[in-house]
């Protein structure tokens, strides 16, 4: 029903130049999942509450359910599919994932804050993770994994 009114959007997706046809207000989440087949980003609420669809837009976490795809033209979008597996060891050990539905979003925010140690001067990990609702872990497994990774990083610096 949207073929009357589609537009081609070009952006960089996980480091690769990408073109996709979208309707003007298609959500980035739908574009990623259904048009581009990247199903790692999950839809948990469709209202920007749960964070399961967290991706990076020009390096900053956003909820892909609240981004119109046309607004990412010319931008860098990174999804869970871009996260190197070896960076997840601490979270695997700490029990950061149970059912896994919130997990891709959790991992995106966690990796972002691990890449930005300066944030720890002003923010607690719990505050920064508050945009990712998890119903299984009670958050300890997640927080422990992040803090463990941070300790490992700071000790290897």
């Amino acid at each position: 029903m949207s073929d009357v009114n589609t537009m081609q959007i070009e952006f960089t997706l996980n480091g690769t130049p990408t073109k996709v046809d979208v309707a003007p207000m298609d959500r980035l989440l739908d574009t990623l999942r259904y048009a581009l087949g990247l199903t790692g980003s999950k839809e948990g609420c469709g209202e920007g509450e749960c964070g399961a669809c967290t991706v990076y837009l020009d390096g900053v976490p956003v909820n892909a359910c609240l981004v119109p795809t046309f607004q990412v033209r010319g931008c860098h979008v990174e999804t869970i599919e871009s996260i190197p597996h070896e960076s997840l060891d601490a979270m695997l050990t700490s029990g950061a994932t149970q059912c896994g539905a919130c997990t891709p979003g959790v991992v995106m925010t966690a990796c972002w804050l691990n890449r930005h140690p300066e944030l720890s001067k002003t923010h607690s990990v719990r505050e920064l993770m508050a945009g990712n609702l998890c119903r299984c872990t009670g958050y300890d497994g997640i927080i422990d994994g992040i803090e463990c990774e941070q300790r490992t990083k700071s000790s290897t610096l």
Binding site: P68, F70, Q71
Partner: peptide, 27 residues
């Protein structure tokens, strides 16, 4: 006019009325 769209896209798929409107992107 829309900027970050964090209000406009809330519950977007089911918001049939919002889909009939026109938006001006400021981004």
């Amino acid at each position: 006019p829309i900027a970050g769209a964090t209000d406009v896209l809330v519950h977007w798929p089911g918001n049939l009325e919002a889909k009939t409107r026109s938006y001006l992107d400021l981004s």
